[in-house]
Amino acid sequence: MTEQPSGVIHDIGYRKYDGPRLGRARVTRALYAHSLRGAYGLGRSARAKVLPMLLLGVMALPAFIIAVITNVTSDITGGLPLPYSRYVMVTMPILAIFLAAQAPASLSRDLRFKTVPLYFSRPMERSDYVLAKYGALATAVFLLLTLPLLIMYVGALLAELPAGEQTGDLLLALLGAAVFAVVFAGIGLVIASLTPRRGFGVAAIITVLALSFAAVSALQGIIRYEVGDADLAGWLGLLSPATLVDGFQTWVLDASSSSVAPPPGAAGGVVYVLVTFAVIGACWALLNLRYRKVAVS
């Protein structure tokens, strides 16, 4: 290619495009893939990869240690030191940081640089954009949660623990992880979509997640152990995303509870399920609403 000063228009002839034009569905999938890769820093600068990969490593490390311990002590204990379904609650801070960092990274760029009109002047509806972004971040979080579970599973199999039981537990935990992923991704994205400033988005997400968890746990602890009202403590768990989904998991998937108080009885369980789905629905609706209002200038 000859080098020309940029003022001169080079004439090699324009070629028309007669190839396939993929419709909305394929375009949405392309945006989904692009956003998912972006959540782990792939396709971006080297610096963007550092944090997500580091978090992935930190997330997987305890699982690796658990796998090793399981192999060493399997004759004595006959099981995993930590059940699959409790892993996510134990590593909640890491999940929270990942979400706080990557949800704004996904949305704030397009909002801040006002690239959004370029998307919507293409054959892509607003709900397609939201679906792609939501799906991508939920998948990213799911992968973050799944990797350690798989490591523990392999460790369990190597320790010759009963495969049927382990597989069953793993699948239930994966299902729980999926619900965690969808709920947390939704909340993170809703908060991130409210501000084009990435730094503030990060702070707001972590504040909502960390503060709600700290406050609810503390309250639950006090109410359950000092006041003795386990039921009220159980109801309080609806107020923070982490305890909400943990309660869902405990009641629906028969997982072991990591919260201070599980959902109170069958009525509590049903309410937990309803609220979980309501939260997901609300996040979807709010995101769509937000992007309908994005100023198209």
Partner: peptide
């Protein structure tokens, strides 16, 4: 003491410092 320690000193104050200090 437990409440203020767990919610205020351990969570609220650091988060506050974060939001305001960076803000």
């Amino acid at each position: 003491a437990d409440f203020l320690g767990a919610v205020s000193v351990a969570a609220l104050v650091p988060l506050f410092g974060l939001i305001v200090g960076t803000g």
